[in-house]
Design a protein around this nucleic acid. Structure first.
Lengths: 353, 353
DNA sequence: GGTCGTTCGTGGAACGTTTCAAATATGACA
DNA sequence: TGTCATATTTGAAACGTTCCACGAACGACC
């Protein structure tokens, strides 16, 4: 079934020209005389010739792809980033190799090696931990690296991020402004930079409002998913109402959805009895039964911008200057948050049904 | 900054051996004498040598990657499939190039060309439409193709799918068994094979129960997302209660979540006033405020199996036989569906809070 | 009919591997 | 000491492109 792949040489033979000419038809058709070009193109069609990308890459020294290494492809945040990257890359005729590090150092290392062997134009990565050392070496060996959703530790690298501290501050400031006194922060592990920053922002908001930062009830979670959110909510719900927080700020939307679900299951009304603000503003946040208030990140833009920086570095003729881009997040208020209500008979706003 | 990439030749020079020996150290270390091997490995380390995958591929005639073309990376169904594919591929040391056709014929064609030029080991694809012709030609030229979530039209190809007709039948049979008399089907466009099959299954369930198939109230949607689900629900909600369906079967979970959200917003209780069953059983389905009943597909298994078939065809020494694998879906009942209740005061089961 | 420009086309080197037949070293044995 | 088998290493030919220095053909012009 598998016929021998046809090469440029056979095309040349059929068209009665040299291989160089076929190559020219392929890459610079304008410098080839009309009739010759037609003859070659006919031969290409007749033989079903397909360029061999490996050979081109070998000759060129670099492949026509870029690598994207994310922490979790199943997280809508990253699929949106990937989307932005892909759009930008395809405009330059590049393909994207998507790698899922799954938050594991080992897989990350494995993929970085693979990408370097593939001689990709460059790598976009959200590192598992601050992997500065390893990435810097990659860069020295000639593979540009752009950090996505992290700040570059030095001026020697490009990075694209969203100001997570500001995001945390926006969310908690709003809750304070709404009149909440007892606020919880749900998130973890604290070793994740995004989590730590969002927490820091929350603390900053408290300080600015003249509150003690010990007023923030921190509920640490082992992961950033729905199940962890549910467990955190169960913990909060057990507190007696006078001491229970009236608002929860979650480190991401998956957690927030877990919290929402558990509160709902326990007949604690959102937002009447407890307000919830999430982070990321994934599409499902707006579709939750109580649409989630959330801190929106420009996800696709993040991807696009990262890809642009990478391409500028990889293709730009030495004119590239490293930049650390920081976007601002935006607070989106929906129905899951509002001013606290005094306990009593059901409020007039529908809780969830 | 970018130092000249070091090749096998320089390693050989430093270690004082021939390039062939370096290649042997890399690929068949056991046939190289111990001391020589050590010397070469030291040289590799000292120079920071990285294999050039393009050159290997050129020599081998095939790359060490497989292509995966999906309709929508943002749909959790496909990210789970991708996950399965990736797990299986990485066990064989292959990388996955993930391509998003975005339901557009043009993008699909573009990516197929790109993958063929890359000489991938094979392609896994959920085609935009029945693209039998084009895919068959690909296969003839030597690139194995496995259809994912579609049935192969002929014996000449492998395919992996889930029995969507059965899935539809399971869902609607359950609703009938629960005592529902008026049932709606929400889904579209009907040109999508999955939608048509699930609808057919619903009709079959009605027939088996001795009902007229005209009893199914079909609400056509323009797409399979949350927004379309909301619009469909609004349409259903406008019907006067005596004629309004007491149960809705949706062609996928995104639609179902939209329906749930809109019903909830209109204070129509789920499942007391209306039952909902979705399709796919994505992770978010269980996390909805009213956990969704849904028809589960073995998503990761789908991906794994597809990859296995592909690898068997690509790597297996001519012993491959094409297979059309069909999995069975499984109905998962959660709180969004149940027996219909007579209208009246709030039932004892919590609706949504 | 030479000379000079253009316009096209040619032929072969190079990219970095792998593979394989052939060459060489090693050691056992008579 | 020579012979033979075995273990190791070598050297060169591919793989399919692109690139580039040349050459051929063709007019045009003096």
């Amino acid at each position: 079934m598998a016929e021998a792949a046809v090469s440029i040489r056979e095309v040349a033979a059929l068209a009665g020209v040299s291989v160089g000419t076929v190559s020219n038809v392929l890459n610079r058709p304008d410098i080839v005389a009309g009739p010759t070009r037609d003859r070659v193109q006919a031969a290409i069609k007749q033989l079903g010739f397909i360029r061999n990308e490996s050979a081109r890459q070998l000759r060129a020294g670099r492949s026509r792809t870029i690598g994207l290494v994310v922490l979790d492809v199943a997280n809508p945040f990253f699929t949106d980033v990937a989307r932005g990257v892909e759009d930008e890359a395809s405009e330059s005729g590049l393909a994207v190799i998507l790698c899922n590090s799954d938050d594991q150092q080992g897989k990350e290392t494995h993929y970085l090696e693979l990408l370097e062997e593939h001689r990709v134009q460059g790598i976009l990565i959200t590192p598992v931990t601050a992997a500065g050392e390893r990435l810097a070496r990659l860069q020295q060996r000639g593979t540009p690296v752009v950090l996505v959703d992290s700040r570059a530790p030095s001026q020697g690298q490009c990075s694209v991020a969203v100001d997570d501290v500001l995001g945390g501050e926006l969310a908690v400031s709003r809750l304070l402004g709404d009149g909440h006194e007892r606020i919880a922060f749900v998130g973890g592990p604290a070793s994740i930079r995004q989590v730590a920053d969002r927490h820091e922002g929350a603390v900053r908001a408290l300080r600015q409002a003249g509150r003690s930062e010990t007023g923030l009830h921190v509920v640490a979670t082992p992961a950033l998913n729905v199940a962890a959110g549910k467990r955190a909510a169960a913990e909060i719900a057990q507190l007696p109402p006078p001491r229970r927080p009236t608002a929860v700020f979650c480190a991401n939307d998956l957690l927030a959805m877990g919290v929402l679900q558990e509160m709902t299951a326990r007949r604690i009304r959102v937002p009447e009895s407890i307000s919830i603000i999430g982070y990321d503003d994934i599409e499902f946040a707006a579709a939750a039964a109580v649409p989630l208030s959330s801190v929106r990140q420009p996800r696709q833009l993040l991807g696009r911008t990262a890809a642009q920086l990478l391409l500028d570095e990889a293709l730009g003729a030495g004119t590239h200057r490293h930049r650390q881009v920081m976007f601002e997040p935006e607070l989106v208020i929906r129905q899951s948050s509002g001013p606290p209500r005094k306990p009593g008979p059901a409020a007039e706003t529908p809780a969830v049904g």
